[in-house]
Structures are given as C-alpha cells and as structure tokens.
C-alpha cells in the first residue's frame, strides 16, 4: 500500500502509527514536498488482517520474537506458565494433567496472578492441600 500526493505527484512518506486500543489502527503519511498529511484508518477487521501476516505498518522497531504471533493472538483460558512450571506440570500423569492445570490456573486467576511459577504451585499446594500434584 502506497500513498500518492496527486497534486505534487510525490509518494507520501510514512510518518506515524497509532494503536488506540480498540482494535483500530491510524497511520499518517506526509507529502515530502507540500507537507500535506493524510491518515489511513483501518477498522478492527482490517487491522487484524495486517496483524495476521506478522508485519507492522511503519516497520519493525524490534526483531521478531519466536512464536510472537501465536503467543500474542492464540486465546488461552488462563495465566501464563513459566518454563519451570511447565516442566513440572509435564511430570504430572497425563490422565490428570488437565485437571491439575485447571486447579492451578483457577488458583492464580482468583488471586490476580498472571504467571504461574513453581513457587506459586508450591503455595497453591500448601493452601489447597494438593500434596503430590
């Protein structure tokens, strides 16, 4: 997508990007000759489509992190799990792992905890009487 200042016959340059937080995007472009500024406003669906491609209007300012798109966009029902906590959860027998995970997630959610760590798991076991999980 490019913008042309028809009057000056000049390609307009990207100037600024704003993400108001309501799913929309505002990007401004400026004519390098006459200084005219136009704004491109996208609705949430259009914004999501661009986001889905893993690209950023205005260019990247930091390198892409591994699984950046997935971690940002896949809906999970609970708090994040630290690597150590995931390793510990993996040692729980598979036939009860889902139930155990839910117990810890509910514990964290009720207390406003955003990341489950081994320490949080220890606290939950102690408070909820879950020895062995």
């Amino acid at each position: 997508m490019k913008f042309l200042c028809v009057e000056c016959d000049q390609q307009m340059a990207f100037a600024q990007r704003e993400l108001p937080g309501d799913g929309t995007l505002a990007a401004t472009f400026k004519c390098p000759k006459c200084g005219r500024v136009v704004a491109m406003l996208t609705n949430p669906m259009e914004t999501q489509l661009v986001s889905s491609l893993g690209v950023e209007i205005g260019g990247r300012t930091v390198p892409a992190e591994p699984f950046e798109m997935l971690r940002a966009n896949v809906v999970t029902g609970g708090p994040a799990w630290s690597g150590d906590a995931q390793e510990r959860l993996a040692r729980v027998p598979s036939f009860v792992r889902g139930m155990v995970k839910k117990i810890y997630a509910d514990y964290a959610r009720e207390r406003g905890i955003t990341e489950i760590t081994p320490a949080i798991m220890d606290n939950a076991r102690s408070e909820l009487g879950l020895e062995g999980m």
Binding site: Q48, A72, V74, G77, K101, K102
Partner: peptide, 21 residues
C-alpha cells in the same frame, strides 16, 4: 499452545473472522 481440550481460537474481531483467520 492450547489449554487441554480447548479449541483453537484467536483474539480479534469475532464478526467476519473468516477474513483474517
């Protein structure tokens, strides 16, 4: 990446999600 038993669901506008899914 998914919780046990949870379907794959993405954040984003629910209406017309076929456009970007």
């Amino acid at each position: 990446f998914l919780d046990a038993g949870a379907p794959l669901s993405f954040t984003g506008p629910a209406a017309e999600s076929f456009v970007w899914r």
